[in-house]
């Protein structure tokens, strides 16, 4: 099990080593110590490897992730798991702005709070935040599911496309074209699976409200023809 101390070893060496992994490697479980808030830790991975980072990380940790399972034992700076394609990223503390931004797939789990713009422009990623999310979360969210066990800040789901939002607590305000929708059995099944995948226990899908697009903003409407 490779163990990398970023206090003594350059970050570029770690990322290069992770990028060079091949199918016959035995190095499938890595631990990283002393991240000290550095940016771009474990970015661009494309291998089913397990990475455990012990401490707070800076910007864009696990960005563009494919296949890998990355755990941050601490807080994450801006853009954790930005543009994730697949795999799983887990933050045991809080995440700063734009967590999971533009993600195409995979699962991002944040045990604490995520600040503003969580899931901005998400395109298929699933995000489970056990705390609350800040303002403008799921802004222009296109696909995927954002699950918030706590509260959501102002303008949730502004200009949303077809992502689905589930919030257990209060929503400060909904953004343009985002509306509450019925929570049907099919949604509860999906939500239950996500909660299980994220390791959430003792919380029922019935406790959530579902939000999504009213579809008035992005479809052509004849009344707006003069604007084109």
């Amino acid at each position: 099990m490779p163990s990398v101390d970023l206090a003594s070893s350059p970050l570029r060496e770690l990322n290069s080593a992770l990028h060079a992994l091949t199918d016959n490697t035995n190095a499938t479980h890595w631990t990283v110590s002393n991240p000290r808030g550095q940016h771009n830790i474990a970015v661009g991975l494309d291998f089913p490897v397990e990475i455990e980072i012990d401490g707070h990380v800076g910007y864009y940790c696990a960005g563009m992730n494919k296949q890998a399972r990355v755990t941050v034992r601490g807080n994450a700076g801006q853009g954790i798991a930005e543009n994730m394609m697949s795999g799983r990223v887990h933050v045991t503390g809080d995440a700063s702005q734009a967590a999971g931004a533009s993600g195409n797939g995979g699962l991002l789990v944040i045990d604490g709070n995520a600040s503003a713009r969580c899931g901005i422009s998400m395109k298929g990623i699933d995000i489970v935040v056990k705390g609350s999310v800040g303002h403008l979360s799921a802004f222009m969210a296109q696909a995927g599911k954002l699950v918030v066990l706590g509260d959501a800040g102002e303008a949730l789901g502004d200009s949303i496309y077809e992502a689905q939002l589930f919030v257990r607590g209060t929503v400060a305000s909904l953004g343009a074209d985002c509306v509450e929708k019925p929570l049907k059995d099919e949604h509860k099944v999906e939500l239950k699976k996500l909660l299980d995948d994220a390791g959430v226990e003792g919380v029922s899908p019935d406790e959530f409200k579902r939000y999504g697009s009213a579809r008035k903003l992005y479809h052509f409407h004849i009344d707006n023809v003069g604007s084109y």
Partner: peptide, 11 residues
């Protein structure tokens, strides 16, 4: 710092 409370100040 390892035992500090670390957070992002709210807007």
């Amino acid at each position: 710092i390892d035992a500090a409370k670390v957070w992002e100040p709210a807007p």
